[in-house]
Every structure is written in structure tokens, then in C-alpha cells.
Design a binder for these strands. Structure first.
Length: 931
RNA sequence: GCCGUCUUAGCUCAGUGGUAGAGCACUCGCUUCACACGCGAUAGGUCACAAGUUCAAAUCUUGUAGACGGCACCA
């Protein structure tokens, strides 16, 4: 069989995924071992509006590598995929579509029709991200795909809401909330970001005091809110204003009179020391208002315009226009003291960047006290355990400690409508269904709350709702309502699983690890932890891997506005999925990285290297097969080389077996501790440096000669390497592994013995420390060092490879034996024609010489040697070694070091120093001989 | 304001007490029968700066400078 000269990722990517998926390799049911331990991960559900970005690609690579690794180790693995209904995002898309296509507003078509359109939108556009997940090679179990608005997940949400309400953990209340006038909904604190405005203004307004000529000055960044002022506050200890407390202000532009009050909140040092109090439009003012029983005067509509309470002149005017008008009118009245430039930070909506308005509004909240304590209790025992631990463990805990209540209602139509109903008097009835609510209300006519729940509320249930938890007993009344509204949508892909897995919750929860970005640590990670504990009594996940941020080439986070994004799909097309994946895995866990195409190119080259190494083996694999029997004998010999007679396991064989096992053990250890970059680096260097550069080269003659024993061995090494690489490079390794002679399901982990042959179910190599062979590694490095020195001489003396020469080597008896046994390999790789091995070097003066740790060597170069060049070469070597020796001797002459450092350390340095001394002496002799 | 992270070769990054590493770029040499997406050989670093702990510091402590992140506040 002969492969193409270069690896073409596309052809491999095109056919393997389909086969894997259709053969059921991704589902836990493929595992036939009743004793198999479960291993599960739930995907952070991406927004249905989303498309794949580099952050996803990074997280998915890590999750898939873990899942594939554990699956190959025989675990019953489940990686559960799904999407999030993304309330605001979808709602916005549908509103835009409606406007563009039909020039209509949502209210023109009504709620029911709007929701129908949203489902249609989701069906048409919502699977972009899931298709991209397939392209990435993600081994998720599609049969368990979840969507936060699926019937069973919706039911779970409803039950959770009702339970929390019944227990008093959910309440409805009037609070200052973050209001986005564009999206017309309330936002939680976490959905509000900050934006610095350098051109902000601080406006000083003069308020006249009643029955006097006096005015007092307040400063504000939001002058229009003065229309809602219901007091002016000073600090009681402030002497300047002591007399004024209790007096009254004639509030300009209104006909209202408001009191001057004293409150601790006011900082006398800041500004004028006088604060206007607007309880309905500022959280701090709200608290002041509560303390003093002030009126809460709402002067704004929910679309960001002023309302009638602001006065006829302002009614319906946009808040920013009103701001200018207020300032202008104060100016006309001579009450504008000044306007200063002032750098301010404004709260903006995370998604649409509109300036958020703090506004008094009645909303639903989750009380976080108990939730927080529960999560803190777990966090004490490092549940979850974050990787990297620093800084996330502490950031998480600190955030929990300062947690405030969570606003969960949203003024949207797309989402889970809040299961609360009101009678004509405004009494609230929270129930699982409309019927139940009506019953509770004694049969009165009720209207359901029009708000929906925060998307993160349903995402917070993800770790258990996706495993079939609904909070209702089977057949219990309560599921019907949700199912019905579901079917009304006219779509049917959200049916329950055809073969329901009732035990999923028991089998797969707690999940083993959660992999996600920093941005949703609070928004999602913490809430999943709390809600899972509360409702299932289990931890959601034991470990939490927080990935770093993939930055653009400019070192800033990728974003559309900066136009510095890199599309993963483009990288897949250009370099292949596998190259992109293993590059992403090569980034240190949690570290931010500047995107660099060259990095992916490196691993594209690596993929090609693997392809070509396999190509070479296959070209010569006639009659060979991956065969455990011959392998066993090889291992046996590697452990106990037969005494007398020539062992059939050569030095190279014993060496590569040792290196392979060290690599396997280290790779497993690295994956176990989420050190993906370490695993990648180990595999990269083992495969390229040890296997390709040395092993293949050393065995080349035997292999091209068709030595069956040699080809069988090399194919086994290759097979083992491919299996270790599979979690990172699934397509390439599958493509090649299936082509190796003798690969079949007999190499599978026993849990998958009957499945159709695939590398993804092959046994993952664990490595065996008993197969470490320190003697072979030492001998091999003597051979390698010798070859390198000869190559160095050739390169530095500028001798064409066409010219063959004889290499003389002097070493102790043991190493002489090693060199003799590997003479053919040394001659080939050093491009020499003769090897003279002895106790001493016996060479003419015109020779190039060098030393290694285990040997002295010389290459007679009569007529080829340039004495000056050789002199410089020797002098450089001497200088290098002398520098090292000087440093060592400095340390060794330090009595403190000799006394206090560990004895082995001291001995190690002494040995090295002695060795250096002898090497330097040899080189000096060589140099003198040239004079 | 509070908490925290980062600063290592020209570039992008590994490296948590014992002789400074990788990939790419650079220099030199190779159409060597798997691979030029390759092979071989070099060169390149006061580990941001300063002080301290230690026999020994890129690594631990403190401080300084610069870059950045999270949280809070912002009349």
C-alpha cells in the first residue's frame, strides 16, 4: 500500500465522523463492560444564535481530548451536547426579521405568533453551531442532545421555580434594577458591563431654598433625573449646611417642594457635599429614600423616554434630549452654576451596549443567602476544584462571599414564561400549571405573568436537567401543561429520547469536569453548583477547568468591533482540524494566548510528519502486522536480555520501548492533571525526535530489507503512538490506524471488544515502568552523541557528504562493545566508511578530534583538514567546557555548599567536574598536537 | 479603591530551589531511496528592575516600573 506524499486533511475529515456517529461510538451504550466506570462532561450550551469562535474551539478540544482519552481507557463516557435558547439574542433576531420582512413590531402579531416565529427561527438558523461541532470531530452523544426549551428541561425549570418560591427562596419585589431601554428588559448585575466615557459631564445645579434668597448646589451626571428628586441630602455633621436641614427646596422646573434631609450616606468631602435624592432612579438614593420615607417618583418610561410625571414639557422626550433641555432651562433661570468635564464610567448592556438605566421596578428575584452558604460550604473543600487553581479558586470564593440577590425575570416573550398568575386584585398564585393556579385561587380568572425567566436560570439546571431530571414523578400532573405549549410551537425535534435513559442521573452525576471560560464563571458555573446541590443533593462537577482567552494578533480579545477575530473554520480549511486542535491543546491550561497562525502550521507539519512516517512503514510492511505475540517476546527480551548469544532486541529496540513507556506514563499523568500542553509536547518530541529522527533512521536498513521482525516492531510502535495521539488528532490517527496491517478490534479496550474496528475504541497505552531500560538509554545516548560529533566535524570542516571517511573511537571496554554492536548504524548516520574502535586513538596529526561523555573520537582528514579551522573548533569546545567547570569548581570550593547541600548533589557535581577535567585535558592535547 | 495575574531568545510561548528550553524566524550545508509541511549543523538570553531569604533563586519574600484581568464605587 502506498500513501500520497502529503497528508490531505479534508479527505480524512469527510468520512470518519459520519461513520463514528452512525456506529454509535459516541454513546455510552457502546461500552459493554458492566463494571465500567462512568465519565461524563456536559458541554457549556452555546447560544442557538451563535457560531463557532476560537474560545469554543479551545474548550471543545479539551473536552473531546478528555472524553476520547477516558473512552479509550474503558470508561463509560458521555459528553452531552446541547444549546441554549438565548432569550435576548433570539428575541432580537426575530424582532429584526419581523421589521425587515414585514415592517411589523412584535405587538402587531402578538405573543403567541411571535413565539411561533422564534421557534421557526431556531429551526432554520439554530443548528449552525451543532454542525460546526461535528466538523471539529467532537465525540458528543447526539442522542442525548439537550435544548433549554425542550419539554423536559422546561418542566424542570418550572418545578425548580415553584419549589424555590414555596420555600421562600424566590420572591417578587420592588427594587432598583438595571434596565436596558433598547432590549426593554431588566438585566442581572452580571449582564451589565462598564464603559469609560472620557467626555462625560458633571453638571452643577443650583436649587433655591424656600423663604430665602439662598440656593444650594448639587452636582449630577444625570441632570434629567432631577425631575424625580424627592429630597436633597447633606451629611448631618457638615457645619456648612447644618442650618438648612429641615428646610424646604423649591425644585425648579417642577412645582414641587422637597425637604432637605441629613443622611450618613453623603460624603461632605465629595463635590459640594449636597446630594439630590432620586429614589426611583438610583440604588443609593433608593436606600436613603427608604430610611426617610421619601416618595419614589418614577419619571421615565421603560423605553428610555420621560413620562408624564416629569412634567408636560418633558413627557415622551428621550432621556438624553431631556438631559440637555434640563440644563438649558437651568441656564435660562440663572440656576446653572457650571458644567465640568468629567470622566465617568457608564453601565451598559452587555449585548447591545445601550446605557443601562437604574430604575425602580417590580421583578422576581432569587434570594441568594442560603444558596451562597451552600456553595461556600462546598468551596471550602475545593468543590469544584479549579484548574488552574490560582487565581480561580480564590476569585470564585470571594465573589460568593459578596453575592447579592439575582434578578431572574426578563421582559421578553422568548423563554420560559414565569409560572405565576394574578387575579384582578393583583394577588399572586405560583403553580406548576394554569389549572393548579386557578384551583389555588378558588376558581377565579387569572392572568399569567408575562415575563420569562433569565436564560441562565435554565442553564443553571443544565447539569441535571439534561440527564432527565424534571422534578416531577412520571405521570404526575404538571408535565402536561408544558408538553402542550411545546407542541403548539409546531416543531417536533424535542421529543423525549426514544430509548429513555432513566439512570443517566444516577450514572453520570456528578459530572467529572466542567470546561469553560472565565467569562461565565459566576453567570453559570456558580449557579449550576448551587442549583444542582439544592435539587439533586449532588455536586454538579468535581473539577472545573477554566480556559484562557484566545487573543487576536494584536494581543486584545477577539471581537467583531476590533475586527481581529480568527475564524476556526478558516483554520480548519487551511491547516486541518487536527492541526488546529492539537495547537489549541498545546496552550498552557488557563493561559491567555495571542493567536499565531505559525503555531497551527507547526502542527500541520507535525501531522504531515506522522503521515509520512506511516507512509514509510507501510511501504515496507509486506507480511507484517500489529502483533502482540511478537511484541510480547520483544518486551520479554527488553526486560531480560538473553545472556550469551546476541539478543534479537537491538539497542534501538530496547531504547525505543523504554522511551515509549516513559512517554505513555507521562502523557497519562499530564492528562490526569489537565496539563494538556505537557501531553502534547511529550508526544510531539517522542514522535518526531525519538521515533522519526532516530529509531526509523537506525532501523531503516532492516526495514527496507523487509525484515519481518523489524517491520512488525516498528508498526507496533507506530500503532501505540497513534493511539496516544488520537485524543488530540482524531481524524489523522483514524485514517492511518485503519491502514496499518493487522489493526482490528482485537486491539480495542475490552469494553468495546465487539465494536467495529476504530482507533477511538482502541486501548489507550498506559505505559509500564517495568519496561524502562536505563542501560539502553545510556548506551543509546553514547551512540547518538558519537554520531552528532562526527556530523559536527563534517559540517564545521565543510566536508561534502560525498567524501566518506573513517572514524576512530576510543572508549572503555563496555562502550567499545556498544559501538561495535551498532557499527552499521553509526556508519550510516555519520556517513562514514570505516569505524576503528580501540582503547586509544591512533591517528595522524591531521585529524579532527572531539570528546563525548563516553568516548574520544577522531577523524583523519589528510588533505581535507584546515588546521586553523580545527584549532578554532577545538578552542571553542575547550572554552565551553572550561566555563562549565569553572562554575562547578566555584561551587565545590564553597565550604557552605559542601556542608549544607545534599550529599548526592555534591557528589554529582564532583563527578561532572572530574569528567570535564578529563575532557578538557584531551582536547588540550589535541590542540597542542596541532601546533 | 480592593483582589489578582503577567513581564524568559528577534517573534509566540513552556519551564515553581540545583548546568536556561521549544516552535517559528535567522546563519551555514544538503534534490541522502517516508517527509523541502523535509534532513543535518550552528548562532542567539544579566529570565523587567532593586533589595532580601538560601550553600544555591527565572523559581520563594518585599518593593519599583510597565501590561492586563476581576470586583466595588462613581452626587
Amino acid at each position: 500500500m502506498e500513501l500520497d506524499k502529503a497528508y490531505d486533511p479534508k479527505s480524512a475529515e469527510e468520512h470518519h465522523y459520519k461513520r463514528w456517529e452512525e456506529s454509535g461510538f459516541f454513546a455510552p451504550e457502546i461500552n459493554q463492560d458492566p463494571e465500567a466506570k462512568p465519565y461524563s462532561i456536559v458541554i457549556p450550551p452555546p447560544n442557538v444564535t451563535g457560531s463557532l469562535h476560537m474560545g469554543h474551539a479551545l474548550q471543545h478540544t479539551i473536552m473531546d481530548s478528555l472524553i476520547r482519552w477516558k473512552r479509550m481507557l474503558g470508561y463509560r463516557t458521555l459528553w452531552l451536547p446541547g444549546t441554549d435558547h438565548a432569550g435576548i439574542s433570539v428575541q432580537r433576531k426575530v424582532v429584526e426579521q419581523l421589521k425587515k420582512d414585514e415592517h411589523k413590531k412584535p405587538t402587531d402579531i402578538g405573543r403567541e405568533e411571535f413565539v411561533k416565529r422564534a421557534w421557526a427561527w431556531k429551526e432554520q438558523y439554530g443548528n449552525t453551531i451543532t454542525e460546526q461541532l461535528r466538523r471539529e470531530g467532537a465525540s458528543v452523544d447526539w442522542s442525548r442532545h439537550g435544548f433549554t426549551m425542550d419539554a423536559s428541561l422546561s418542566l424542570a425549570g418550572r418545578n425548580v421555580f415553584c419549589t424555590l418560591y414555596d420555600e421562600g427562596w424566590i420572591y417578587r419585589g420592588l427594587r432598583i434594577v438595571n434596565w436596558c431601554p433598547k432590549d426593554r428588559t431588566v438585566l442581572s448585575d452580571l449582564e451589565v458591563k462598564e464603559e469609560t466615557k472620557k467626555d462625560g459631564k458633571l453638571t452643577y445645579l443650583k436649587y433655591p431654598v424656600k423663604d430665602s434668597d439662598q440656593t444650594i448646589t448639587v452636582a449630577t451626571t444625570r441632570p434629567e433625573t432631577m425631575l424625580g428628586d424627592t429630597a436633597v441630602a447633606v451629611n448631618g455633621s457638615d457645619k456648612r449646611y447644618k442650618e438648612l436641614v429641615g428646610k424646604t427646596i423649591l425644585l425648579p422646573l417642577t412645582n414641587r417642594e422637597i425637604p432637605i434631609i441629613a443622611d450618613e450616606y453623603v460624603d461632605p468631602e465629595f463635590g459640594t457635599g449636597v446630594v439630590k435624592i432620586t429614589p426611583a432612579h438610583d440604588p443609593n438614593d433608593y436606600l436613603v429614600g427608604e430610611r426617610h420615607g421619601l416618595e419614589q417618583l418614577l419619571v421615565m418610561n421603560l423605553d428610555g423616554t420621560m413620562n408624564a410625571a416629569a412634567g408636560a414639557e418633558f413627557d415622551g422626550m428621550d432621556r438624553f434630549a431631556a438631559r440637555e433641555k434640563v440644563v438649558a432651562m437651568f441656564d435660562e433661570l440663572g440656576l446653572l452654576e457650571k458644567v465640568d468635564d468629567y470622566e465617568i464610567t457608564l453601565p451598559v448592556c452587555e449585548r447591545c451596549k445601550t446605557v443601562v438605566e437604574p430604575i425602580l421596578s417590580e421583578q422576581w428575584f432569587v434570594k441568594m443567602d442560603e444558596m451562597r452558604d451552600m456553595a461556600l460550604e462546598l468551596a471550602k473543600d475545593k468543590v469544584p476544584h479549579f484548574s488552574p487553581e490560582i487565581p480561580h479558586q480564590k476569585v470564585y470564593t470571594t465573589w460568593l462571599e459578596n453575592l447579592k440577590d439575582w434578578t431572574i425575570s426578563r421582559q421578553l416573550w422568548w423563554g420560559h414564561q414565569i409560572p405565576a398568575w394574578y387575579d384582578a386584585d393583583g394577588n399572586v398564585f405560583v403553580a406548576r400549571t394554569a389549572e393548579e393556579a386557578k384551583e389555588k385561587a378558588g376558581g377565579r380568572e387569572l392572568t399569567q405573568d408575562s415575563d420569562v425567566l433569565d436564560t441562565w436560570f435554565s442553564s443553571g439546571l443544565w447539569a441535571f436537567s439534561t440527564f432527565g431530571w424534571t422534578g416531577s414523578e412520571v405521570g404526575e400532573e404538571g408535565s402536561a401543561g408544558v408538553e402542550e405549549s411545546e407542541s403548539e410551537s409546531g416543531t417536533t425535534p424535542h421529543l423525549p429520547h426514544s430509548s429513555p435513559p432513566p439512570l443517566d442521573l444516577e450514572t453520570f452525576l456528578p459530572t467529572d469536569v466542567l470546561v469553560t471560560g472565565r467569562d461565565i464563571m459566576f453567570l453559570w458555573v456558580s449557579r449550576m453548583m448551587m442549583l444542582t446541590k439544592k435539587f439533586v443533593g449532588k455536586t454538579a462537577f468535581n473539577d472545573c477547568v477554566i480556559t484562557g482567552t484566545v487573543l487576536g494578533k494584536d494581543g486584545k480579545p477577539m471581537s467583531k468591533s476590533r475586527n481581529n477575530g480568527v475564524d476556526p473554520i478558516e483554520m480548519f480549511d487551511k491547516f486541518g482540524v487536527d492541526a488546529t486542535r492539537i495547537y489549541l491543546a498545546s496552550i498552557a491550561t488557563g493561559a491567555d494566548i495571542r493567536w499565531n497562525d505559525v503555531g497551527v502550521e507547526t502542527y500541520r507539519n507535525f501531522a504531515n510528519k506522522i503521515w509520512n512516517a506511516t507512509r514509510f512503514c507501510l511501504m515496507n510492511a509486506e507480511g507484517a502486522a500489529v502483533d502482540h505475540k511478537s511484541l510480547e517476546s520483544l518486551l520479554q527480551q527488553a526486560q531480560e536480555p538473553p545472556k550469551g548469544g546476541t539478543p534479537s532486541a537491538s539497542l534501538a529496540d530496547r531504547w525505543i520501548v523504554s522511551r515509549l513507556n516513559k512517554t505513555a506514563i507521562a502523557v497519562n499523568r499530564a492528562l490526569d492533571t489537565y496539563q494538556f500542553h505537557e501531553a502534547v509536547s511529550l508526544l510531539y518530541h517522542f514522535f518526531w525526535d525519538d521515533f522519526c529522527d532516530w529509531y526509523i533512521e537506525l532501523k531503516k536498513d532492516e526495514i527496507t530489507a523487509g525484515d519481518e521482525e523489524a517491520t512488525t516492531r516498528i508498526i507496533w510502535i507506530l500503532d501505540t503512538s497513534l493511539r496516544m495521539l488520537h485524543p488530540f488528532m482524531p481524524y489523522l490517527t483514524e485514517e492511518l490506524w485503519l491502514k496499518l496491517p493487522g489493526t482490528s478490534n482485537h486491539l480495542h479496550n475490552k469494553a468495546f471488544a465487539d465494536a467495529e474496528a476504530t482507533i477511538m475504541l482502541a486501548d489507550f497505552p498506559l505505559g509500564d515502568a517495568k519496561l524502562f531500560d536505563d542501560a539502553a538509554e545510556k548506551e543509546m545516548s553514547a551512540v547518538i552523541e558519537l554520531i552528532k560529533k562526527v556530523r559536527n566535524i563534517r559540517a564545521e570542516m565543510n566536508i561534502s557528504t560525498a567524501i566518506k571517511f573513517t572514524v576512530h573511537v576510543a572508549a572503555d571496554a563496555a562502550f567499545q562493545e556498544v559501538f561495535r554492536a551498532n557499527e552499521a548504524q553509526i556508519l550510516k548516520l555519520a556517513k562514514a566508511e570505516g569505524l576503528v574502535i580501540g582503547d586509544e586513538l591512533d591517528v595522524p596529526r591531521a585529524s579532527a578530534k572531539a570528546v563525548t561523555n563516553d568516548a574520544r573520537l577522531a577523524v583523519p582528514l589528510e588533505g581535507l583538514i584546515d588546521v586553523d579551522v580545527e584549532r578554532t573548533r577545538l578552542a571553542n569546545q575547550i572554552a565551553k567546557l572550561t566555563e562549565e567547570k569553572t562554575r562547578l569548581d566555584g561551587q565545590l570550593s564553597n565550604a557552605n555548599f559542601v556542608d549544607r547541600a545534599p550529599a548526592e548533589k555534591v557528589a554529582e557535581l564532583r563527578d561532572r567536574s572530574t569528567e570535564l577535567e578529563s575532557q578538557i585535558a584531551t582536547l588540550n592535547n589535541n590542540l597542542e598536537a596541532l601546533q
